[in-house]
């Protein structure tokens, strides 16, 4: 049912980091505070939440009005996530692109801002982004919704990775409806960004 995907406004995207590059999560806290000072990423940036004492979830959050950015350790795989809270205009595909643009821009900035840290900065190979629906009403975990979302994400993956070698796989989490889009080989974030902007 295409209806579901069309109504879906709450969702998250996560771009995975090179695990060895992710470093100590608490070092990101001052980075996010600086982002607020400088308005470094899109949105009304409100506050930083420190959950570095937890595993398997967000570790450091940058709370914005429209969305939450997070250094995310869900499933033991570090990455940067963008969880949309406020509705966006446009088709589902257009909304995905807007969210992806915010996420990738933030990831670039994070690469840049951590690059001079001792032990090296965080690196995003740019070959994999996970999508998860975050609205169990608009997108319940059913085969129908998954099919509708798969179509949308195949199109999104095509756009993101320039059409070639895109693999779409369901998330490895029985409680969430989601898919990862993946390509072979690293793609520079700037390239990804230019494709969704």
């Amino acid at each position: 049912m295409a209806y579901h995907a069309a109504a879906l406004q709450r969702f998250s995207l996560k771009i995975f980091a090179e695990p060895a590059s992710a470093g100590v999560p608490s070092t990101i806290i001052p980075v996010f505070h600086r982002w607020i000072q400088e308005g470094a990423v899109p949105g009304l940036l409100i506050d930083v939440a420190d959950y570095t004492h937890l595993v398997d979830g967000p570790s450091v959050l940058l709370i914005a009005h429209e969305a939450n950015y997070a250094l995310d350790e869900t499933g033991g795989r570090p990455g940067l996530s963008y969880t949309r809270k406020q509705p966006l205009e446009g088709t589902f595909g257009e909304r995905l692109a807007v969210a992806a643009a915010a996420l990738i821009a933030a990831a670039r900035r994070l690469e840049h801002d951590t690059s001079r840290m001792t032990g090296g900065g965080i690196v995003f190979p740019g070959n994999e982004i996970a999508f998860a629906a975050n609205d169990r009403l608009a997108a319940p975990r059913t085969a129908d919704t998954e099919t509708a979302l798969r179509d949308a994400l195949v199109a999104f993956g095509g756009r993101l990775f320039g059409g070639s070698n895109v693999e779409v796989q369901p998330l490895d989490d029985p409680a969430r409806l989601g898919l990862t889009v993946k390509t072979v080989g690293a793609v520079p974030l700037a390239t990804l960004l230019s494709r969704v902007e």
Binding site: R10, A49, L54, G57, P58, A70, N134, R136, A175
Partner: peptide
């Protein structure tokens, strides 16, 4: 609680000093 923490909050549940659960943001 997990679902609503994820959808409406920041993905974290807090147990309080009076046996409640709190969600923030």
């Amino acid at each position: 609680l997990a679902d609503i923490a994820e959808e409406y909050s920041d993905g974290v549940c807090h147990v309080t000093t009076r046996q409640d659960i709190q969600l923030h943001f």
